[in-house]
Write a protein that binds this DNA or RNA. Structure first.
Length: 549
DNA sequence: CGATGTTGCCAC
DNA sequence: AAACGTGGCAACATCG
């Protein structure tokens, strides 16, 4: 357990019950070499306040650690977990440990200890003890411990991916943009967009139309006699008029230009790498969020700019229909597990006879998970309920619990925030009662989705943790070029909820693909040892990201 | 002029 | 297929 105290670091060796065995004091300046020695000899399980605070600088000095507990992340999970509700930790007052992570730019450099204002926190050893005790006393200690381990290894992986970066060809990106929009303008719009604006102005007889302003665009559409109620693309698509096609084309271009155009490359791509900042556990459900660069929204249009280094490949893997499979495993729904024997679970549902075609299966399934009530998903719901009673009961129970104001849990025990249920209050007006009911339903859709999305995030975290270890072993023997731990080794380069991109030396790509499949099986066994669910993957070995699937 | 709210669209 | 879950982000509009 490492604790920074000014220009010194206290290192305490503790046992599994967080009892102190040994303590030394290291000068911050010597810490790197001290840690390097311990890491190479014994792969200790480091314990530190916050991976975002410690790890980027260590990676910058060439230190990759096998294991590390992230106290801040673990506290957040435990504080809200119902399974640890009776603990001293749950009862403790809010303090600095509950605060947001210390922001760290990726590769913020090699300065480990000159952050001017470290957060005031209690002794991390006290915090570790509180957490250890909370887990030990819980009736759910097995799954909680797995959740904390998965979250902590996720934090390591996130920092490593930011460090390694996603290989990005700025010149290829420029070609994509130039093909689509015209050459990069010095000022104003690219040529092809400007041409479209001229056409839009003619077609709408609005000589000073600015299509970038939704308000003015809407007025121009209405002045031209179109029945537009907003400028949303999916609404405009319903209107028959010669201006619609070029307008939709313009909106597509404008989106690419503003979100992932030349300015984006200038800001986010350096030395051939895009280095996003991942926010581990940044979403209530436990999914990751990202901070800056829109890493989790990379449009398919620009993925062609993600190009492996010469002599390297990208191995891209996607967990096929992960959420339905997770639901099948959680609920023990044998019929749904059987449908998942098909590589495509939706085709499996069609084959089961429950629905007529793949699109009905897909929207019925998504409707069940999201709480859809209208359209196709509403229509096939009764048939889904008959065909997959256990799975449907699980999500509908979660929805009703949310409507009553109760909290719900993922498979590993992450607990949803407290919501307000629909309390009956006869003093309310009819209108207020109706609103309360609408709010309760809406919260029920959230809790319905929480259990599945959150458990899928846990599966993905276990998958990635297992894969991280396997990739490191696969790279053993490769001469490492200090201070770059991943310079010669296959490594994770990108993660997107249920999808990973590994950057790998070409001669190892086939073995990487095998490890990805083995890691998925590992994750399935970790979470659902007995479930007869297949964890289907789509794996592609490619030179650029757009060639996958 | 910056802060805040709204709109619309990208990802899963 | 309609507008049902989780997010981030850029641009425009408005406010103080």
């Amino acid at each position: 357990m490492l604790d920074r105290r000014g220009d010194r670091v206290v290192a305490v060796t503790v046992d599994d019950d967080a009892v102190e065995l040994h303590r030394i004091d290291v000068a911050a300046a010597d810490l790197i070499e001290w840690m390097r020695g311990h890491e190479s000899r014994e792969h200790p399980r480091w314990v530190w306040s916050d991976t975002t605070e410690w790890y980027p600088a260590l990676l910058g000095r060439g230190i990759r650690v096998e294991r590390a507990v992230d106290l801040r992340l673990c506290r957040r999970i435990l504080r809200s977990a119902e399974a640890a509700a009776g603990s001293r930790l749950a009862a403790a007052r809010r303090d600095a440990w509950d605060r947001a992570p210390i922001a760290s730019a990726p590769d913020s450099g090699t300065t480990l200890f000159d952050l001017s204002a470290p957060a005031e926190r209690s002794d991390p050893l006290d915090e570790l003890r509180l957490q250890t005790e909370a887990v030990a006393q819980s009736a759910q200690r097995g799954v909680l411990a797995l959740l904390l381990a998965a979250e902590s290894v996720g934090a390591l992986t996130a920092a490593e991916m930011s460090h390694a970066g996603l290989p990005w060809s700025a010149s290829r990106h420029d070609e994509i943009l130039t093909d689509l929009l015209g050459a990069r303008p010095v000022a104003g719009r690219p040529r092809r967009m400007e041409e479209l604006v001229v056409r839009l102005r003619e077609l709408l007889e609005a000589p000073d139309l600015d299509p970038d302003s939704p308000e003015r665009l809407l007025r121009a559409l209405q002045n031209a006699g179109l029945p537009a109620r907003s400028t949303r693309s999916w609404e405009l698509k319903e209107i028959e008029h010669p201006v619609i096609a070029p307008l939709l084309e313009y909106k597509k271009m404008a989106r690419v230009l503003t979100a992932n155009g030349w300015n984006w490359v200038d800001t986010w791509v350096h030395e051939g790498r895009f280095r996003p900042v991942y926010v581990v556990g940044g979403v209530v459900t436990g999914r990751w969020a990202s901070d800056g660069g829109g890493a989790l929204q990379l449009p398919h249009q620009v993925r062609g700019a993600v190009v492996a280094d010469p002599g390297w490949k990208l191995v891209v893997a996607d967990a096929a229909q992960l959420e339905p499979r997770v639901l099948a495993a959680m609920s023990g729904d044998a019929a749904m597990a059987r449908a998942g024997r098909a590589h495509d679970l939706y085709e499996g549902i069609v084959a089961s006879g429950a629905v007529a075609d793949r699109s009905e299966a897909k929207y019925g399934m998504l409707g069940a998970i999201y709480g859809g009530t209208t359209g196709v998903s509403g229509r096939v719901l009764p048939r889904m309920r008959r065909a997959f009673p256990a799975a449907m009961a699980l999500v509908e129970d979660a929805a009703r619990a949310g409507e009553r104001g109760e909290r719900v849990r993922t498979w590993l025990g992450r607990t949803s925030p407290a919501g307000r249920g629909e309390g009956y209050d006869e003093t309310l007006t009819d209108e207020a009662r109706a609103r309360a009911r609408t709010d309760a339903r809406s919260w029920g859709r959230f809790t319905r989705n929480f259990v599945v999305q959150g458990t899928a995030a846990e599966w993905a975290m276990c998958w990635m943790g297992a894969l991280r270890r396997r990739l490191w072993q696969l790279g053993e023997g490769a001469p490492s070029i200090a201070p770059e731990p991943f310079a010669r080794r296959p490594h994770l380069a990108f993660f997107l909820h249920d999808e990973v991109v590994v950057h790998a030396p070409a001669e190892l790509a086939d073995r990487v693909a095998e490890e990805i499949r083995s890691a998925a099986a590992d994750a399935g066994r970790m979470l659902f040892p007995a479930a007869p669910v297949e964890w289907a993957l789509t794996v592609a070995i490619v030179d650029s990201y757009d060639r996958a699937k």
